[in-house]
Simulated scan of single mutants.
Amino acid sequence: MPVENTAEQPYVVGSKSFTAVAVNCAAKAGEWIKIKLGTHTSLNTKYSRQDLVTEMDKGAEALIRKLVHTHFPDHAFLGEEGVEPGPEASAQALRNVQDAEYLWIVDPIDGTTNYVHQFPFYSVSIALAYKGEVIVGVVYDPSRDELFVAEKGKGAYLRNRKLSVAEEEVLSDSLVATGFPADPIVAYPANMAQLQAVAPKVRNIRAGGSAALHLAYIAAGRLSGFWEMNLSSWDLAAGSLLIQEAGGRLSDINGEPYHLGVRNILATNGKIHEELKDTLLSAGGV
């Protein structure tokens, strides 16, 4: 496992490390999907009409899987496109690999709807968990060529600059983000109620359409908080480490500690966590 970097030295990814493989996979997949932007020939829905998949999602995941297993053939792999649609299938897929010593957790295009519409807010999300704990997290935004990388105990970085979360201490000073869930029956109405509760209390709200990038933006101090329901481990795992290493906080919406099985996420700079949690809960449970 990675060790803590106690010296004040520039952060360098070792050429043979888990992190180097994650970075290489994200960069190659990101370059490929950016080149293919606007050329998809198949477009299908999965769990709902808002839950899209293209051949680019599947191709990028196959590329990442091949690269990972070239270096680490014995490691387990959990990718979004290898799982049947729906929350139950996602939860079962995680249970099937939860006992793996090393588990790669991958979303090849987080923000497929944006990608399909050529809206430049999508990302490649790659995490490595060791015995259920995320030890490497990489989120790559091909549109801006921004690669966010975190290694447990070594901090979170963007272009060799160490990241830290925003300083806002109250909701009224905060820019926060949310995402609109694919489940139209339970999660979407609950999200609308939460949105109505949060909006009057914050500086403003954004909904970019990529949970992984929203989490990376919290680590970078660009957002102070984010919540969304009905997400899966591949949406959250990489970003969770970015936030933790940048000094932020994650939990489920009820305030319980984050783990790979959490689906209703609340992520903040830490300072506004309780206030945002209480505001969300005031809108009713899910």
Rank of each mutant, 00 (worst) to 15 (best):
M1E: 13
P2N: 10
E4G: 14
A7S: 14
P10M: 12
G14H: 09
S15V: 13
A22D: 05
A22V: 06
V23T: 08
N24H: 12
N24G: 13
C25G: 11
C25T: 12
A26I: 09
W32T: 11
K36T: 12
T39K: 14
T41Y: 02
S42T: 15
L43E: 03
K46Q: 13
S48C: 05
V53F: 07
E55S: 13
M56A: 09
D57V: 06
D57Q: 10
K58M: 14
I64F: 03
R65E: 15
H69K: 15
F77D: 00
E84L: 15
A89K: 08
A91G: 03
A91C: 01
R95D: 06
E101W: 00
Y102H: 10
Y102C: 02
D107S: 02
P108L: 03
Y115C: 04
Y115D: 01
F119K: 14
P120Y: 06
S123W: 05
S123N: 08
A127S: 10
V134W: 01
V138A: 10
V139Y: 06
A150E: 10
E151Q: 15
G155E: 03
G155A: 09
G155N: 07
R159L: 10
N160Y: 11
N160G: 10
L163H: 08
S164K: 14
E169M: 12
E169R: 15
L171R: 03
L175Y: 05
P181V: 01
A182N: 05
Y188Q: 12
M192K: 12
Q194A: 04
Q196C: 07
A197Q: 07
A199K: 14
K201D: 00
K201R: 14
R203F: 08
N204A: 14
G209W: 00
S210H: 04
H214A: 15
L215G: 11
A220D: 13
A220H: 09
G221W: 07
L231V: 07
G239I: 05
L241V: 06
E245W: 03
E245G: 03
G247L: 10
G248M: 09
R249L: 10
N254H: 13
G255E: 05
P257K: 08
H259P: 00
H259T: 12
L260W: 02
G261Y: 00
G270S: 11
G270D: 07
K271Y: 09
L276H: 04
D278H: 11
S282V: 04
S282N: 07
S282T: 07
G285S: 12
